[in-house]
């Protein structure tokens, strides 16, 4: 009995000793990691200070960059959308598709792109991504193209050669209705196409905000029609 108790104490002692060693090693590892972190941060700060000194000598200054928000938003131009609603220009299904399509817009170009593959979306892919029926999606997109809500770039050489477009048609949403990016910096090429082939205006609907650009300007922007002076 006495032997058993002694053996038990010995085993317990060994276990305790192992535990203490383990704790000590963990503490040491933690201290080492902290020291490494500290030296890395210190080095970085020193480097920044050196860069700042160099910049100051040349009359520049370094400023701390604020953490920017990475949230992505597409903007619907409310007044133009209201104008289309008042004229009952789009059906409910078309509006719903348009809202779904906003999630596929590329920032700055308004093109409908595949979110994973970074290329223009085909209508089949749009239907798959938006979990819609292909036939229905194709019909709605064609109607939106007819109405000038969506525009498409077509390669005329393909039509000449094959009689139809055989690759994916780059589609993009009319920036007068919705835009992903800075609405004061709309791509001039896109703006030119929208202004030249204005289906909405042709259908006798005058949107309150229209795209305008100055000659030779890099970007176009939305201007209120009533306030526009001639």
């Amino acid at each position: 009995m006495a032997f058993g108790a002694h053996a038990g104490q010995t085993a317990g002692g060994v276990a305790m000793e192992r535990l203490t060693t383990l704790r000590r090693r963990l503490r040491e590892a933690e201290v080492r990691a902290r020291n490494q972190d500290y030296s890395w941060a210190d080095g970085l700060l020193e480097e920044a200070e050196r860069a700042e000194r160099r910049a100051n000598e040349r009359s520049f200054m370094l400023i701390r960059r604020r953490q920017k928000n990475n949230a992505w938003f597409s903007q619907v131009i409310s007044e133009n959308f209201f104008c289309l609603t008042r004229h009952e220009y789009m059906t409910g299904a078309e509006k719903a598709l348009l809202i779904d399509l906003l999630s596929l817009l590329e920032l700055g170009t308004n093109a409908i792109v595949h979110p994973d593959q970074n290329r223009f979306c085909t209508v089949t892919e749009i239907a798959e991504l938006l979990k819609r029926k292909l036939r229905n999606t194709r019909e709605l997109i064609n109607k939106l193209i007819e109405k000038g809500i969506i525009y498409e770039f077509v390669d005329p050489s393909q039509i000449k050669e094959y009689g139809r477009v055989i690759t994916e048609r780059p589609l993009y949403v009319n920036p007068e209705i919705a835009y992903a990016g800075d609405r004061n910096k709309v791509n001039a090429v896109m703006a030119r196409q929208v202004i030249q082939y204005d289906h909405i205006k042709r259908n006798k609907i005058n949107l309150p905000w229209k795209l305008e650009y100055e000659p030779n300007a890099e970007y176009a922007r939305l201007i209120h029609q009533k306030k526009r002076r001639k």
């Binding site: 938003f73 903007q75 131009i77 779904d100 999630s103 979990k131 609405r183 100055e214 002076r229």
Partner: peptide, 25 residues
């Protein structure tokens, strides 16, 4: 025709959170 482009006016816009719309879809 000279088009004056005032710089102080902005249209009212509705910003749609793309990721959340994608979630809805």
């Amino acid at each position: 025709t000279v088009i004056a482009m005032p710089t102080d006016e902005e249209p009212q816009v509705t910003n749609i959170a793309i990721e959340n719309i994608r979630y809805i879809t």
